[in-house]
Design a binder for these strands. Structure first.
Lengths: 146, 146
DNA sequence: AATCATGTAACAATACAAGTATCGTGAAAG
DNA sequence: CTTTCACGATACTTGTATTGTTACATGATT
């Protein structure tokens, strides 16, 4: 399967929106993401439904942030875009009749659950605001013009 | 993408082979896995190349274990079947020009790397022999006939 | 009324594991 | 030494998910 980049893309967009006055159009965002405006709308629809962004039609319309970035975590965004499967590996049958297969699946699923718990904890611990601040810090450290 | 079940399947097969005298044919294994003999040969080719199993042609031929199960970890098997990507999510561009995207990718990749390290450590810490023993223990605990 | 922008539906492209069919090759059995 | 068995290898097709694309409807602004 192709790798799901929706979380990455939405974080990218949100950080740009946080540093941008006024709404941004799907067309503009699509250029940033090097993709299609329809893909942008499709993906951001999830964020809108969750209340993290707002969209307006017509002249001067587009997308704008609609939530306190301190209160939204990376995990929230992951879930807002559909909370896709995290792992590309797993077991074939959920409830196998074979006892050997049961044992194998249990061992594997244990390990996967642990890794998933860690990842979820990491994503849940970082807010969009913190991510934006760490970006600012990186710019200062790198001598970036403000 | 469809979930990769090669590791799960190969562990299933190896545990059966450990409790089985003489070689097992691809046809027999395919029935266990509820799949096709060609899929079995294709997947087990990796294990053969790594020296974990051996295959023989002709009458009485088939697959047999060719290594000390105490010395082979679940991680070894994962790698032998191609060491596929573990995560289904990730970032789109490896080296983005956009500084914001760089920051986002770094934050995400950090979290993914940590989770991957945990998973790899877990898989690397369990040998096939240990997995087989834990299966035996489970059978005894469940009152399984030996 | 014209324009701009989102909303939605439908469909093609892409990627990759898995499934399938077929033939070749070598080893054992008769 | 011919048949049979089993792997080896190739060339597809299928299934499933994201992503890309086209087209058109809808609502808001000028």
């Amino acid at each position: 399967m192709r790798k799901d980049s929706r979380l990455s893309r939405m974080l990218h967009v949100l950080l740009h929106m946080a540093r941008h006055d006024g709404p941004m159009t799907s067309e503009h965002i699509a250029q940033m993401l090097q993709t299609n405006p329809v893909v942008v709308r499709r993906t951001m629809a999830g964020l809108r439904d969750a209340g993290y962004v707002r969209s307006e039609k017509g002249h001067g319309g587009g997308w704008a942030i609609a939530a306190d970035l301190d209160k939204v975590s990376l995990l929230d965004i992951h879930r807002a875009v559909g909370g896709p499967t995290l792992f590309a590996i797993g077991s074939e049958h959920a409830n196998p009749a074979c006892a050997v297969e049961q044992a194998v699946n249990e061992a594997l699923d244990d390990a996967l659950r642990e890794a998933e718990a860690l990842l979820v904890a990491r994503l849940g611990a970082v807010s969009l605001a913190e991510l934006a601040r760490s970006f600012d810090a990186r710019c200062v450290a790198g001598g970036w013009p403000h």
